[in-house]
């Protein structure tokens, strides 16, 4: 039992540690990147249970801030191959299990 609890603790630790947003790939400039990342975090926290709404919020907000035709995907497991406008891509992990990709392509 003791071992089990310890393991759990360790797990909890790692999870706690690994909830920060981690930018996996991005070619945005720093300012845009920070803003987009914060937006993603906000959206995912707001709609923690509904990825669709989170993605919609990210997309809408990005459209407003940086012009039309943004696309956002929020999910825990998916594959993608996208064409994006250069300097308009953000691929990040968040919350330890969420992958968010935001890109612009009009």
């Amino acid at each position: 039992m003791a071992e089990a609890t310890e393991e759990k603790k360790a797990d909890a630790d790692s999870k706690r540690v690994h909830t920060y947003p981690l930018i996996r790939h991005s070619d945005m400039n720093d300012e845009m990147k920070t803003e987009a990342m914060e937006l993603c975090v906000t959206a995912c926290e707001k709609f923690a249970t509904n990825n669709e709404n989170a993605a919609k919020m990210i997309k809408d907000t990005m459209d407003k801030k940086f012009g039309a035709s943004w696309h956002a995907v929020v999910g825990e497991g998916y594959g993608f191959e996208i064409t994006h406008e250069v300097k308009n891509l953000l691929y990040m992990f968040f919350g330890g299990n969420m992958a968010i990709i935001v890109w612009k392509c009009s």
Partner: peptide, 21 residues
């Protein structure tokens, strides 16, 4: 047209975990 680039990847839980690690 504005320059474009392609980007492809796969998202899985273990990849996310590895990345964090």
């Amino acid at each position: 047209p504005p320059p474009r680039a392609s980007f492809a990847s796969n998202v899985t839980q273990w990849e996310i975990f590895d990345a964090y690690q």
